[in-house]
Write a protein that binds this DNA or RNA. Structure first.
Lengths: 168, 168
DNA sequence: GGACAATTGATCCAAATGGATGTAAACTGC
DNA sequence: GCAGTTTACATCCATTTGGATCAATTGTCC
């Protein structure tokens, strides 16, 4: 049993979530909860089905959207450490999902392009992920979904998101 | 140089973000970007200042909010693997921030309580984290902030968030 | 009360992570 | 064009992660 008798401090899960999402850190708690809980589901699913970590298929998604980009550019879209991106790209190249072209004007960098096989894999990955996104967003009306997206984009556009003043 | 001449496929970072956040996975991309970018900042900062991973101070926050809860309950608030919570609690106990009381009605579980030292530490942690939250949310008006919170809470309340139909 | 399942939390260990460093190429100032 | 700095990416290695398993306790059903 969770609480039972006189427990005034330990309500059930729903009540705890409500209180955490009304606390001082409510904005952080609420949005982090949604993303953490969703990642738990989505990342494990794709990891099992395709033996591929989230960084790899995220990178593949970016490369398919912007053929020719460099590994460095992926970091702008997915804020992860540099070596994480490096390894994800290496995995994609090793499995034949991505091809690296030396850039004519910079011998250090490599232009990344999806292969036909990579695009086919991406299709198979995106199908359940898109369905999961729909499931995740289903508590909101269409109009609320668009509001939510607009607010997230506004937060993402904030210059302090990636370069904090209050934290070094 | 990033693009320069005729590159129609590799716009700059801002344009790439805009396009990713207008793609099929726009909802997922936008909200994940905000949380990932923020975690990058906040988690590293607290990790450096207090040598403490995010799981530990999150757990401490939960324990302070709900004195007497069990390790298991923390998982409801912060969806992470069970052993992750177990280790975070062990760290808090080892450092004297949390005390474990055997529960009278269940000898397996332990009631977790913050110590005075733990509450003092939490205060020192929450100050910059709250400031960071304000910074993060600053692109939104007060009213938009409340809308955002309400939408996140609505998503968090969705029963499919933690138990997907489309993914096992 | 006894056998079987479920739950709580700790621990094992192979694999992933990320800060630091390395290597090579490109800018910068003189 | 030459030192010093910066940038792109790879790699090293100590630490962390998380799936699996374990031990202990509780619940269930007969």
């Amino acid at each position: 049993m969770n609480d039972g008798g006189g427990g005034q401090d330990c309500p059930d899960g729903r009540q705890m979530l409500d209180r955490i999402m009304a606390s001082d850190l409510r904005y952080l708690m609420a949005v982090s909860y949604v993303v953490l809980a969703n990642n738990q589901i989505t990342n494990r699913f794709i990891e099992r089905r395709h033996d591929m970590p989230v960084q790899a298929w995220s990178a593949l998604y970016a490369i398919a959207q912007f053929p020719g980009l460099r590994a460095r550019d992926i970091q702008v879209l997915f804020p992860r450490p540099q070596n994480t991106i490096s390894r994800a790209v290496a995995l994609l190249v090793r499995r034949g999902h991505v091809r690296e072209d030396p850039l004519p004007d910079d011998a250090r960098a490599k232009g990344l392009h999806p292969t036909a096989q990579g695009l086919a894999l991406l299709d198979r990955i995106l199908e359940p992920v898109a369905a999961r996104q729909a499931e995740l967003m289903s508590p909101l009306t269409r109009s609320e979904q668009e509001d939510f997206l607009a607010l997230c984009r506004k937060l993402a556009a904030g210059p302090l998101l990636t370069r904090s003043q209050v934290m070094g």
